[in-house]
Design a protein around this nucleic acid. Structure first.
Lengths: 131, 131
DNA sequence: ATTGGTGTATTATTTATATAATACACCAAT
DNA sequence: ATTGGTGTATTATATAAATAATACACCAAT
């Protein structure tokens, strides 16, 4: 049994389906090396309790991750980060922020914000939360 | 008939429902003063063709905007930005980026990115698109 | 009064998501 | 072999979202 409490965290307001949020979040943690080949994901039932979500929703996410080669199903043990899964360099990880950046740009345009205003504000936001 | 081509733009990948994307985008353009009291929104049918979306999906968004007082339905003419609708100052508009910023922070944490790397990258992204 | 433009209601169908309650197949540990 | 932990399949229900095809009520312009 893993103690989990990964920094998995659902955003109910985002509109993005839960199972899809989980998939993307776990992929990011593999890319960053916070999850390494051989590590185990929290069990379906454990994560379902923790996130207050139906077990089958977790299983659905795990199923997708398995079918895409990110994790391997180890009978009796759980879902293990696949041996092929690899950490990615910073540039590749930044690239994964692109979809969000596109939305950010669009919202700034619609809000009539210029880059100086936006960057100042983002700087404050990020400094509070990131190291 | 308005020529429209507002900078309304749908993100199919975002998972957010279309009608809700429209609501939020139009609200942002009101807040920025790109849409002013008395302006007309593009007609339901026109926008439906332009965005390749069902007319009733547009109507659903317009209905929400009307019931929240953002636009007024003018029979025979279309949906007019309400007289009460007002432009907001920069701070208030920046505040509207908060939900996105929270998701950005979360993704950065999961990707193991620090604030310097992220800000450098965001700066480049924003400089290409924003004035 | 007719024409052509508004937005809207209706009904039906489809798809996706999430939940619920069971039950099952599998393996590790003992 | 039993126990208890994996993930999964099944069936049913509920909700939300989007599409489709019509039809309607309303008003402006002529």
């Amino acid at each position: 049994m893993q103690h989990s409490s990964l920094l998995l965290q659902l955003s109910p307001s985002s509109g993005e389906p839960i199972y899809r949020q989980l998939i993307e979040q776990i992929k990011r943690m593999i890319a960053s090396g916070q999850l390494n080949a051989g590590d185990y994901l929290p069990s379906v039932r454990q994560l379902a309790v923790e996130l207050e979500v139906n077990p089958m929703t977790i299983s659905k996410a795990y199923g997708f991750l398995e079918s895409h080669g990110d994790v391997s199903r180890i009978r009796g043990k759980g879902m293990m980060i696949a041996e092929l899964a690899h950490e990615e360099n910073v540039a590749a990880r930044l690239q994964k922020l692109s979809p969000l950046a596109e939305i950010l740009v669009q919202q700034c345009q619609q809000l009539g914000l210029n880059k100086q205003q936006t960057l100042e504000w983002l700087t404050h936001k990020l400094e509070k939360e990131l190291k």
